[in-house]
Nucleic acid binder design. Structure first.
Lengths: 141, 141
DNA sequence: AAGCCTTACGATCCCCGTAACCATT
DNA sequence: AATGGTTACGGGGATCGTAAGGCTT
């Protein structure tokens, strides 16, 4: 095959919430508890996990009356999935910071006409101030 | 908050194909080329990226007539996303190996009655043999 | 004219929650 | 009864592709 740079991600891996759910099952030992931890119903969780198994083509867990345990393959998948979810969580945190940063800039530019003469002092102050409080009460004598 | 162990992944991060698409845009410098690389239409790619931006709450790229470039925030997100899809790709490869392994076991157990006396020789041979060939033609005199 | 991006629209498919059911402790 | 798991079913939402439009070079 004369590929260019990298093949796009396979389609059967794209269900990130399913992976997250699988991790919860590994931790709690039960589909129902994992479902509650994610704020969804037990049938939803069951169906989601069944789809995941079907799409991966590998049985992941053995259902029992007193809970669900992972197959050896399931344990392996959990290990890999953990790194994926960790990376995703990392990204989520970063995006959150980025969003906050953007909002801060927006607030500053919005109230710029009022706060023009305060900015130099702010910039000399702290880099991670809660701009909302400062903006609402400029405390200018 | 009295959380148990870990908060489930936020919902606005769960679109893995969108992240992958964003990486392609970063590489090719164009939404259309990225779309072609993923085998989808340009409008689909455009809509997907727009949704991603809306969900993240951060502008990621600046559209131009001669292509699309990333905003500073976009560059940052791309860096984090790279690690995520790398981990996902890693998982995909692992699952592929797991699947192949399982299929091998299935073939072996299926033809076990025939191949019983051959297994010891196989096990002494190589660990990653193409069991399909061996199984189809046992080459037993 | 050609390239790049967007909006509009219709059809399809996926996923969730409710409801109902089976098996054990 | 309570817990853990599954299947059946209807509705809402997301995504895709086609078609059409705007803007530069």
């Amino acid at each position: 095959m004369t590929d260019c740079e990298e093949m796009p991600l396979p389609a059967w891996i794209s269900d990130l919430p399913a992976l997250d759910l699988l991790l919860s099952v590994a931790e709690t030992g039960s589909v129902g508890r994992a479902a509650r931890a994610h704020g969804i119903t037990q049938p939803s969780a069951s169906a989601r996990l069944a789809r995941l198994e079907r799409r991966l083509g590998v049985p992941l867990l053995v259902r029992s009356r007193r809970g669900s345990l992972l197959t050896p393959a399931g344990e392996t998948v959990v290990v890999w999935s953990r790194t994926v979810i960790d990376a995703a969580q990392n990204l989520a945190d970063g995006v959150l910071a980025l969003r906050a940063d953007r909002q801060a800039r927006v607030r500053i530019s919005a109230s710029l006409t009022v706060a023009e003469y305060l900015l130099p002092a702010w910039l000399r102050c702290s880099r991670t101030v809660t701009t909302a409080e400062r903006c609402s009460k400029p405390s200018a004598p």
